[in-house]
């Protein structure tokens, strides 16, 4: 294992120190917690938005804290949902009296810990609601699974719910926007290499020299299928073909696209993938209104990428264009 770290047990706190040092003009650390909040939180007259999850997905989630997106982000240990007390601290830090929306990725651990935090907050009279993001089409949404996972599509939820909250909308309206995004966003991921947990130093799965792992999540879990490494265009086509049917797109529909690097993929490759994504969408007479290429929701040093497609209408496009000062998503 080769990592630029000190004590593996301190990676989260040292990372957060470095993050707050870098962005001290706009964010603060809530004392004795792993919560990063806007410097001016709580923002009066605005619904607070709290997201978070395990660490190792940087820039998620602290990178999305800022005007136009999140009010606070909670970091758990690497790939481990944060605990209820930490989430509760975040809720308290951002509640201005207008209520708080929790953005939860659909994992058993995240859902349970955030729900427990919501119970704690409600017991103190804070109005809390939640949205569960489940955009990963690699997982079947059936009673035989815990449902689709929440992956890179979560960033669109942050952006659009964040922009909505900035308008002074109510908790219910902000939640509606978030739900609308969840309904219209789908993602599929592929890995070319595993990632390595700082604490164990072990590779998350084994992969042959010419093999890829299709349908991975963002926690280094094995994907749904090992396949031979083929050309980027073929891999991209397979991913897009799995996403599009779930969105029931018609000709002249509009979408926003995110090609997200998993951590170690050169940007060159992400743009090569994006080229094919656009080609495939044009073939289907679907218009791409916005494209985001980069690292938005990673798995430590995993190589690979995910493709996210969000079906947009005028409202969502406007919210996408709204300004954002979050360090990892400036518009």
């Amino acid at each position: 294992m080769k990592k630029l770290i000190n004590d593996p047990n301190l990676v989260i706190t040292e990372m957060l120190d470095g993050f707050v040092a870098a962005h001290s003009s706009s964010v603060k650390r809530v004392k004795n917690t792993t919560v990063v909040a806007r410097k001016n939180a709580p923002v009066s007259g605005k619904v607070g938005i709290v997201s978070g999850g395990g660490s190792g997905h940087e820039p998620a989630h602290a990178g999305y804290v800022g005007e136009g997106m999140l009010d606070a982000a909670v970091s758990g240990e690497v790939f481990t949902s944060p605990t209820p007390d930490q989430v509760f601290e975040a809720i308290k830090a951002v509640d201005s009296g207008k209520g708080v929306l929790l953005v939860i990725k659909n994992y058993t651990g995240d859902v349970m810990n955030f729900e427990m935090a919501a119970e704690l907050a409600e017991a103190e009279g804070i109005q809390v609601d939640q949205v569960v993001v489940n955009d990963d089409v690699a997982v079947e949404d059936s009673s035989f699974t815990t449902g689709r996972r929440g992956v890179a599509g979560t960033v669109f939820v942050h952006k659009l719910a964040g922009a909505m909250a900035e308008t002074g909308a109510s908790l219910e309206e902000v939640k509606q926007t978030a739900e609308k995004v969840v309904q219209h966003v789908r993602t599929m991921g592929v890995a070319l290499s595993p990632c390595i947990m700082p604490s164990s130093g072990e590779e998350s799965f084994e992969l042959g020299d010419k093999e890829i792992e299709m349908g991975i999540g963002i926690h280094g879990e094995p994907g749904i299928e090992k396949k031979p490494l083929v050309f980027a265009d073929e891999i991209t086509s397979e991913m897009v073909e799995r996403i599009l049917p779930e969105l029931e797109l018609n000709e002249n529909d509009e979408v926003a696209v995110m090609v997200n690097g998993m951590g170690a993929t050169p940007e060159m490759e992400l743009y090569i993938v994006n080229r094919k994504v656009h080609e495939l969408l044009v073939e289907k007479s679907v218009t791409v209104s916005h494209t985001f290429v980069g690292e938005y929701m990673t798995s430590l040093e995993m190589a690979g990428c995910s493709i996210t497609v969000l079906k947009v209408d005028d409202q969502l496009k406007e919210l996408l264009d709204a300004p954002s000062q979050a360090p990892a998503f400036r518009i």
């Binding site: 758990g76 949902s81 605990t83 651990g109 349970m112």
Partner: peptide
Amino acid sequence: VMSKVGGASGPL
């Protein structure tokens, strides 16, 4: 345990 384990196993 609730505040130090995290993940799925912590709450459970």
